[in-house]
Amino acid sequence: MNKVPGYLDPLLILSTALMGCALYLIFIWVPTETNQGAIQRILYFHVPIAWGSMLGIFVVSASSILYLWKKDQKWDRLAVSSAEVGLTFGAMMLLSGMIWARPVWGVWWTGEAKLTTALILFFIYVAYLMFRSYFPPGTQRQRIAAVIGVIGALDAPIIYFAANLWSQAHPPLITGPAADADSTLGSELGIVLLMSTFAFTLLFVYMVQARYKIRRSEDDIVDLKRATTTPGVS
């Protein structure tokens, strides 16, 4: 049993410290951007969160491939954990993006390529997790879930390409926030963004490993239940 208290988890301490630094940089150190004003600071939040959700999808597909190849439970656990955390990040990416778009673009949502892609990938991973909870238990569930993980990742570039082609045919009246973000901030933006991305990546890793532990406990329970319900003749 783990005797170290949870708050002494080095990952949590490190990510808290880094998040503190990132917040200091975001709110106090970096000057306010002239065009968008204070609202532009959402960028330092939105971009790292979006990065986290992409990272989640990448980990899901990589560990799905490894699971199909090695058939080792740990890859399946990693895939579920990062799918769930990635989905949390994805939800926040969509929310923060929408709240940012409203004052800057005047709309909550637009058919821009990146947004469409993000939304569809979000749905694919919702389906992935729903599938896991609906399917009867057994290794078939894990294999099929891994297949969905791989398909989702393969589909991503095609969706992006199609969405891009789509938004060229239906030009939106506004461009992405990134287009005017570097207007008055040069290197400062880069530093803050890097720091913030680093902090969020650590938070992502912390959450995935916490979820992974839960997943392992769940598997332990299943094993124990199997052993207790009908005592085997060994």
Binding site: I124, A127, G152, I158, I159, A162, L165
Partner: peptide, 15 residues
Amino acid sequence: MLPLLFLPVVTPLLM
């Protein structure tokens, strides 16, 4: 479940 899996994946084709 099938539409939930199917429709997002075929979005490019639908477009």
